[in-house]
Every structure is written in structure tokens, then in C-alpha cells.
Write a protein that binds this DNA or RNA. Structure first.
Lengths: 140, 140
DNA sequence: TATTGTTATACTCTATAACTATA
DNA sequence: TATAGTTATAGAGTATAACAATA
């Protein structure tokens, strides 16, 4: 029985919960709350609207509006009007935001980075693909 | 290359956290909030004091006191005085509590099984290997 | 009319401080 | 005095509902 879905479901769930539990301790020290940090990280690849961020982070529009305000108030992101649609605005990470992200990232994921470094390239590739699969699976 | 490791570390963490969160969401819709469920799960192995539970769950004593009250109010756990120490009380899971736990566990499994069933065999194999890698990585 | 984003309001979970009872 | 547990109060983070501006 190589296709035991129940066993696999259990293995995946336990593995994910253990990782979550383990890294949570390391993130507790960072200055920015997790949800704020997560949005800041999402902005690293380019400007996004609050709506896009809310969808990506799976929170309500008002929640994202609040989180975005925190980023803007702290000078970590900049709000600018969308030239194509007057209803929208665009959030872009600032230099200060990138710096904060870089600083926090090294501390936050140091544990996982260390462990990943000790793996083979092949194993890291598996984790890379697995992360994409899992993210897709839970986003439905 | 170290940037790749940082990004991968983040992706792995986020994926795992989202799986954990989504699984908890799914169970939360039935009846019990995650933190209540977690305490109920902790009681499955035997009676515990509020203090022990607070330490185990890493929350404050007042928070645990509130959570425990929810369990007792719903008849899922029973509060009884500690015969050896008048200050303490003991929490014990009830039949109803055990039943709720079993129900939630099956729901939680079925959620993951459903999602896994929609994947390709190759993707499932990736998740199988990734689970083993992550479990090993975190257990060190 | 529909949509994008924000503001108003409320609920949940959390914590610190203060209180009661017992050791 | 110190400890176990509860109550009082407040601070985050979240959501739904209502609103303003634009498409």
C-alpha cells in the first residue's frame, strides 16, 4: 500500500506543526509582529495593492488596511495612488523596510537556514517544491 | 547562495505555518477554538492542574484559567479539588470531551486526505519525502 | 451599480496587576 | 511569606457592516 493517503496526511500535518512550533520561538524576538513582517516580505518583489495583499495573506480587507497603515506609519512602506485606477493605491517597500527585512530575516530564519545548509541540494529542491505544493493546497 | 537559503527557509516556514493554521481553522469551524482544543488534547493523557497546563501551553495563568472555564462550562472537562493541596484543582477530560476530541481528529484528517487526493502521485511523493526531511531537520 | 479601500464597532485571545485562599 | 488559582482590566489582531471615492 504505497498510496496510503491517511498516513501521508498525518505525516505532512505533524511535520508542518513541528516546524511551526519550532520556528515560532525564533520569531518571537523580532521587533515587528508576524503579520506585519509577512506583508513586508510580500512587498519585497514589487509594489502591490492592499487588495492583493489581503488575498495573499488571507485576511480581510480592513485587517490588511490596518496592517498596511502600520508599515506606512513606521516608514517601512510607501502608499502611492495607482495611475490607472483612482480607487486603488500601491504599496511599495522603502529602503528602511528592506533594511528591516534583511535584519530580521537573518535572525528569524537562522535556525532553518542552518538546517537547510546541512542538507543535500536534492533535499533542498524537494523542500522547495513541497513548499509550493503545500501553499497551493491550502490556498484553495 | 545564502540568499537562496534564506528565501527557502522562509518559504518552508510559511508553508508549514499555513498548513498548520488551515488545519486548525478546519477543526475550529466544528465547535472549539484552537487553544481550547489544544488544552483538551493535553488532558487526554490524564488529569492536570491549571498551572501545569499553562506551562505546557506556554500561556499565562489567567489565560489558562479562562480556557479551562470554557472546557468545564461545556462539560468537556471536570474540575475537582486536589486532595493533597487545597490551593490546587485538577482538570480531567470527560466522556464528552473525549468524544469531541475523536470527532475533531477525524475531521482534521479528512481535510488533509481530501487535499492530498487531488494531487498527482509525483506531488504526493515529494510531500512524503519532504515530511521525512522536515521531521528529521526539526528533531535535531 | 459594482469595486477598492478605509473607518466604526465588536469579539477573541492574550497579558499584567490585584485579590482570595491555602501552604 | 510564598504559591495556586481566579477576577479585573487593557492591548493586539481579527472580522463584519457601513461609508466614501472611483469605474
Amino acid at each position: 500500500m504505497s498510496e496510503d493517503l491517511t498516513t501521508l496526511a498525518y505525516e505532512v500535518r505533524i511535520a508542518c506543526q513541528r516546524v511551526s512550533r519550532r520556528v515560532r520561538y525564533d520569531t518571537a524576538t523580532s521587533s515587528l509582529p508576524p503579520h506585519v513582517l509577512s506583508v513586508l516580505f510580500a512587498l519585497r518583489t514589487g509594489a502591490k495593492t492592499p487588495g492583493e495583499l489581503a488575498d495573499a495573506e488571507r485576511v480581510s480587507a480592513p485587517s490588511m488596511s490596518k496592517t498596511v497603515s502600520v508599515l506606512v506609519d513606521r516608514g517601512l512602506a510607501e502608499r502611492s495612488p495607482d495611475p490607472d485606477d483612482g480607487r486603488r493605491c500601491l504599496l511599495e517597500i522603502t529602503k528602511e523596510g528592506s533594511a528591516a527585512l534583511a535584519e530580521v530575516a537573518s535572525e528569524r530564519d537562522s535556525f532553518m537556514v542552518q538546517r537547510l545548509a546541512s542538507l543535500s541540494k536534492a533535499d533542498r529542491e524537494i523542500l522547495r517544491r513541497a513548499s509550493a505544493i503545500l501553499t497551493e493546497v491550502v490556498s484553495k
